[in-house]
Design a protein around this nucleic acid. Structure first.
Lengths: 114, 114
DNA sequence: ATTTCATTTCGTCTTTTATCGAAATGATAA
DNA sequence: TTATCATTTCGATAAAAGACGAAATGAAAT
């Protein structure tokens, strides 16, 4: 019950996860693209994604050898949709988000996934 | 910048703190009343209150030897007012909250503050 | 069938968080 | 001014969270 509420807020309590959510609102991304954006290890990114997925903010979609992560556009929990549609309201930092946005538009998964 | 967002979500990421916020929406409370409600040590309650205060969800008001904690009805951060005015939306668990509500209406600080 | 390569899982480490009891603080009452 | 008592701060402990690299997994291409 209240555990679900805690799960939502905990998922939102990390700057890297907030950046991931905003980035995914621009376009679908795979683990290694997010790794590139955030400068974290693959395994760390994978861990963050599983927390976001567990809270139902995102879903995954297999595409060949890649796994694309995308925003969950049909969450059953109205709180999730509420947060997702007002993410800019919750995250004050426009500058950081804009910067990330321009980076992911340039990132190419073929070249960076070593 | 984004640290402030994280501070807000972290403050909301603990069931005891959510219960404190809802309880304070019913009436102002001192540390030992909250201690009674939650079954925690004084020092733990004090710690939770300082986290909520630091995120500006609540403010304190001295009254004799007691310190009353009250909901911040004029937060400068609009996100804080937004959460406070929609707390029931964020906290799914009505049952727990209603139970707490009836308990604090009976609690008397004179008798319980040993 | 084997190799390749993105991703996940596992084990470990460090930092942070939630909790407590005891000691320090601060204000009221005697 | 001393005693009382609510609260806070301090020190310790256990559990959770964030991070990493290495090993395991799983799908595609050879």
């Amino acid at each position: 019950m209240i555990e679900q509420t805690i799960k939502l807020f905990k998922a939102l309590s990390d700057p890297n996860r907030l950046r991931i959510l905003k980035a995914l609102q621009t376009k679908k991304l795979c683990v290694c693209e997010i790794k590139e954006l955030l400068g974290l290890a693959n395994s760390t990114v994978s861990q963050h994604l599983s927390i976001l997925k567990d809270a139902s903010f995102i879903i995954e979609e297999k595409q060949g050898k890649w796994v694309n992560y995308i925003i969950n556009s049909n969450p059953s929990d109205v709180r999730v949709s509420s947060i997702l549609s007002a993410l800019d309201f919750w995250i004050g930092d426009k500058e950081l988000i804009e910067k990330d946005k321009s980076i992911i538009q340039v990132i190419d998964r073929i070249t960076i996934c070593e």
